[in-house]
Simulated assay, not measured.
Amino acid sequence: MNEALLGSVLAAMSTGIGALPILFLRNTLTHRFRDTLLAFTAGIMMAAATMSLIPESLSYGGFIPFGIGILLGVFTLTLLEKSIPHIDLEHNRRGIAFDQKAMLIIAAITLHNIPEGLSVGVSYASDAEETGNLIAFAIGLQNAPEGFLVALFLINQKISRWKAFVVATLTGIVEIPMAMLGFYLTSFISSLVPYGLAFAAGAMLYIIYKELIPESHGDGHETSSTYSFIFGLLFMILLIQIF
């Protein structure tokens, strides 16, 4: 349990770490840098899902629990999208008032962190200890640019740098109780482990394809983003091989 708690805290706090540069930057980063960073994290999450979570789920329960878990993860994220509409942080600046837009962004990011927290907790509940560490690492790397973009959006809306940093950090806190919930559920009901691992994989695949890849291709930097995705994939596979 201690490892799960520590891993969830580190993954959640990565949102604040990602937002930290906002306090010191005087000029905003280029679209190319942001897009390649998002693509790199997409590659990391893709490797974590396909090379760790999916094989683990299949080895624990076979295809049926795996398929059910994948679909549950995808459907959960779909319902969240329907309930809290996704608003592009960088490419859409019109059509919604500031107060409403800011609240929607914060609510959407916070809700999207719920399945990520569950993913970390479930991964630590499996027998393979390194799986939890790898998933917490992957989620943490995904949270960092997310925190940066949320803080950057808030600053662009004339919110002070410190307030933007605090709000961006708080959006990741929800991952800690969700990770503990996922850990305890799958620890006490062992039959849930393959479903939980597949749920985590489905949620991550949805985020990759629906959020990270489209965001990284929004400014005409498709080639550099594609290479960045591949390097992120290779980086995570290397870590999986080492650990």
Rank of each mutant, 00 (worst) to 15 (best):
L111W: 10
L37D: 00
V74K: 02
G61M: 09
I84L: 06
H91Y: 12
I106L: 07
S59F: 11
L72N: 02
N133E: 05
H112F: 07
E130M: 14
F33V: 11
L53T: 12
H112W: 03
I70K: 01
M51V: 14
T41D: 01
A128C: 06
G43W: 01
A102G: 08
T131P: 02
S123D: 03
H86E: 05
F33R: 08
P65L: 07
A48P: 05
L118W: 05
A102S: 14
A125G: 07
F75L: 15
L118A: 08
E116F: 10
E56P: 04
K82R: 12
P115K: 11
A42M: 09
V120E: 00
R32M: 03
L80F: 15
N133A: 14
L58W: 08
F137Q: 03
I114N: 04
V122I: 15
N133L: 13
L37H: 08
D35I: 08
L37V: 13
A107L: 15
I64S: 11
R26L: 00
N113V: 12
L118K: 08
A97G: 13
G73Y: 02
N133D: 03
F33A: 12
T36G: 03
E56T: 13
A49E: 01
V122H: 01
T30A: 12
L89A: 01
G132Y: 05
P65F: 09
N92S: 11
M103P: 02
T28W: 09
S119H: 07
K101L: 15
L29Y: 11
G67C: 08
A138S: 12
T30C: 04
S59H: 15
L72H: 03
F63L: 14
G73V: 13
F137E: 00
L29S: 06
I109V: 15
T36H: 02
L38E: 01
F98A: 14
F137K: 13
T110K: 00
Y124H: 10
A48Q: 04
D127L: 14
N92Y: 11
G121S: 04
L134P: 04
I114E: 07
R32F: 04
S57E: 03
D127S: 13
T110V: 12
S52R: 09
M46C: 10
L89C: 06
T76S: 10
I109Y: 02
D99F: 10
G61E: 01
G62T: 13
F63Y: 13
A47D: 03
H91I: 12
N133H: 12
G132L: 01
S83N: 06
L53W: 10
G67T: 10
Y124S: 06
F98P: 08
E129I: 11
I106D: 02
S83V: 13
H112G: 02
S57M: 04
I70A: 00
T76P: 05
A102M: 14
I87G: 00
